[in-house]
Write a protein that binds this DNA or RNA. Structure first.
Lengths: 238, 238
DNA sequence: ATGCTATTTATTGTATACAGCATTTCCCTT
DNA sequence: AAGGGAAATGCTGTATACAATAAATAGCAT
């Protein structure tokens, strides 16, 4: 058991229960986003309950939340599994990101200031560092965090929450359809974007974000994964 | 007990459990959207469990879903209550609708066809009828349904789901800040919009939707409701 | 009479036990 | 040997019982 999991396994004092649930939620969510739990992986309630030292009741609550965020799929009597996004869903998600994230850029540029820019640059730095040290899955999550933080800076909490969900799902999509070695955001894209935002050039930032997202989507290989049970008729051309 | 509630109260045969939960969810959701449950109203688990004839377990599941959709607020040891949107939240929701719904209009126009147009006209008709017969709360819900159906016609399920949540919250906002007698969508706005979409004029539809949403937002009186405990210092000018 | 404290009550949070379906496995039949 | 059916097992769905906490009330002291 990892240290993180051991740290989560303290006593059930109910006052800390909420924080604890939140921590477990984030642990599972991060594991999915970082592809330590791969699409299709089954998430049995008993197993999770034992790992985190709480009862199935709490686990179910967390799984339902993840299901509403479409990170896990809940099939009626089969339980939970990590969502395997379809190509159609991937298109919807990136179209949605085009509309929302690009639309937010002018607002973000208007509200940008030195502190926010410094914070974003630090996030971009961590992301590059993770990439250099070969931690691909961590880099994917940091990249998603960057996009979310950007949306939060727009001042619209509702749209920021939407972006958060889109970025989580994007990580799943990258996990399934992304090429190894060419993961999503280019190294310096985020830094360039910060530059445009710092100078208040909202329209330029918007156009750049559009190209940025298009580049990510274009880097995907949208071939559907083989099913566990292959279609023999198709394979043998009957 | 109403017929609808009685119909929900059959036996717990587990195969029908999912449909049943969905029906209860919609019953509560509709009651909130139609303002039969007003903002601030407490939703005690025992009471709901008794009304719908299921145990608290199922009720909690539904309340958590409603909480994630921000229709109910879940305060840690106080339970659930119907969300009372703040003025800031209202602004966020309408800004989000501007961005998303307007952005979808070109896509909707592109995919519009006779069958879809007929369906939309029927929905608009029902809405007018509800208005004429004085069923304001029903009209509010039908209006939300119209906007949601429109978003679904864009073909992007993800964005349509976002619009669904925004429209639900808008109904709550209208319930709190809307004037009596001037509720949201003007009678013929929706019909006009269908006209633009039918002729494939996406840009025109987009501009019209923008004015439409601005008009709704402008019709609100964004004064915060008085708290139960009034500020005596302010009242007596100390 | 008012303010503070303690007890009681009402309500949520959690775990556990039980019931029900789905899948799997094993055996029997052809 | 292969296919189908029946029993068994594994897992989820639901309810209920219990624990913990916040609100309400009553009692006491000042």
């Amino acid at each position: 058991m990892s240290d993180a999991q051991a740290a989560l396994k303290r006593r059930p004092s109910d006052k800390e229960g909420d924080e604890r649930h939140e921590a477990i939620y984030r642990a599972v969510s991060d594991a999915i986003v970082e592809q330590r739990l791969k699409p299709g992986a089954r998430l049995r309630e008993d197993a999770l309950a034992e790992v985190f030292g709480i009862s199935r009741t709490g686990i179910r609550k967390i799984l339902q939340r993840l299901a509403l965020e479409q990170l896990v799929t809940l099939t009626p009597r089969r339980g939970a599994s990590v969502t395997r996004p379809t190509a159609d869903e991937a298109k919807d998600v990136f179209d949605a990101r085009q509309l929302i994230e690009c639309g937010l850029m002018p607002d973000v540029a208007r509200r940008m200031n030195a502190a926010a820019a410094a914070e974003l640059r630090e996030m971009a730095r961590q992301e590059r560092q993770a990439l250099r040290s070969g931690q691909q899955s961590v880099a994917i999550r940091l990249s998603a965090d960057f996009h979310v933080r950007l949306a939060q800076l727009s001042g619209n909490a509702t749209l920021a929450e939407f972006v958060e969900r889109l970025c989580s799902r994007s990580s799943l999509i990258l996990a399934v359809y992304g090429h190894r070695g060419h993961l999503g955001c280019e190294s310096h894209d985020h830094d360039d974007l910060i530059g445009y935002l710092e100078t208040g050039n909202g329209e330029r930032a918007k156009a750049f974000m559009s190209r940025h997202l298009k580049a990510i989507e274009a880097s995907l290989s949208m071939v559907e994964e083989e099913e566990n049970v292959p279609d023999l008729q198709q394979i043998f051309g009957v």
